[in-house]
């Protein structure tokens, strides 16, 4: 183990980690937002939109992320869509994540008994209040765990962005490995960084879960 290596490559690795976090955060939060909108449109929108969303969910969920990324980054220019690697990475992350999130939100909607919503309509609550005050607080209970799961899965999917030359963590690690002919050190650091992300995500998920299940606990 040569510590001198880390002094030399430390900045590059940290830069790569920053890019990884940027793509992951923007991409997955964007995915949550788009997924939530899709789930809402699917529930309240007209029927044909439901069919479009169904097709979108099935196609994006059913094909590998790497192929979607390839098509966006290398196929995009054919239709005049020129993206930098980081832009392509973030956009494809949003596209890839949103159907999974939409499905998770759909399961959350389904977990709320119909009677509650009917009752809320009867007392004259507007649909938006029903969503924010009745559906959302309750649906967070079953969906927080799957949401955390998927955020964790996405941390590791960021590694795939290296195939379109996004200068993220794996890309920097591979560069370091290739230039110095060391393999244990770079990949050890790599797994440490990923592990850090997963632990922090898991911890935040656990905290959120405590918060949203507070009303279920007995005093």
């Amino acid at each position: 183990m040569e510590t001198e290596l880390f002094v030399r490559y430390g900045p590059a690795l940290l830069y790569g980690f920053g890019i990884t976090i940027l793509c992951w955060l923007v991409g997955s939060i964007g995915g949550v937002i788009v997924g939530f909108l899709l789930a809402c449109l699917n529930r309240w929108g007209p029927r044909f939109i439901g069919w479009v969303i169904y097709a979108y969910v099935e196609v994006i969920r059913g094909t590998p992320f790497m192929i979607q990324l390839f098509i966006l980054y290398y196929g995009g220019p054919y239709i005049g869509l020129l993206l930098t690697p980081v832009q392509a990475g973030i956009i494809s992350f949003i596209i890839y994540g949103s159907p999974y999130f939409a499905e998770i939100f759909r399961s959350g909607f389904n977990a709320i008994p119909k009677g509650q919503i009917e009752a809320a309509r009867c007392v004259g609550l507007p649909e938006s209040r029903i969503l924010w005050r009745i559906i959302l607080p309750q649906m967070l209970v079953p969906i927080t765990a799957p949401l955390t799961n998927f955020f964790i899965i996405l941390t590791k999917e960021t590694a795939i962005l290296s195939v379109v030359t996004v200068p993220e963590l794996l890309f920097q690690t591979q560069t370091m490995a290739a230039e110095t002919f060391t393999f244990v050190e770079p990949f050890l650091v790599l797994s440490l960084f990923y592990w850090l992300m997963v632990v922090v995500t898991g911890w935040i998920g656990a905290r959120v879960e405590q918060r949203v299940t507070r009303h279920l606990k007995r005093a």
Partner: peptide, 15 residues
């Protein structure tokens, strides 16, 4: 309640 998330997970398993 868990079915959509389970299917998500199983699809990821295939890939």
């Amino acid at each position: 309640i868990g079915m959509p998330s389970l299917v998500n997970e199983l699809i990821l398993l295939v890939k």
